[in-house]
């Protein structure tokens, strides 16, 4: 489990991430993947490719294995 702390990247992409609820302060959990990432946000599963995931900074929340 982690919390998104910053997003960087192309403007329209950042905007869409925020619109889909993956903005700053969103809680995310990584489900699977190494280059292409599958994560759980608010009850939905969202896949991000490597370049997309690179722009999202997540801080680990304590007390969780993920």
């Amino acid at each position: 489990m982690g919390r998104v702390c910053a997003i960087t990247g192309e403007e329209s992409f950042v905007q869409r991430l925020r619109e889909m609820g993956l903005g700053e302060a969103a809680l995310v959990r990584k489900v699977s993947g190494t280059t292409t990432i599958l994560c759980q946000v608010n009850g939905t599963r969202i896949a991000l490719n490597h370049d997309a995931a690179r722009g999202i900074m997540v801080e680990q929340l304590p007390g969780n294995a993920h």
Binding site: E10, F13, L22, I46, N49, A52
Partner: peptide
């Protein structure tokens, strides 16, 4: 073009 960025929702 620049490498594309993908966001895709996976349905249940």
């Amino acid at each position: 073009s620049a490498p594309p960025l993908m966001i895709m929702e996976l349905p249940p």
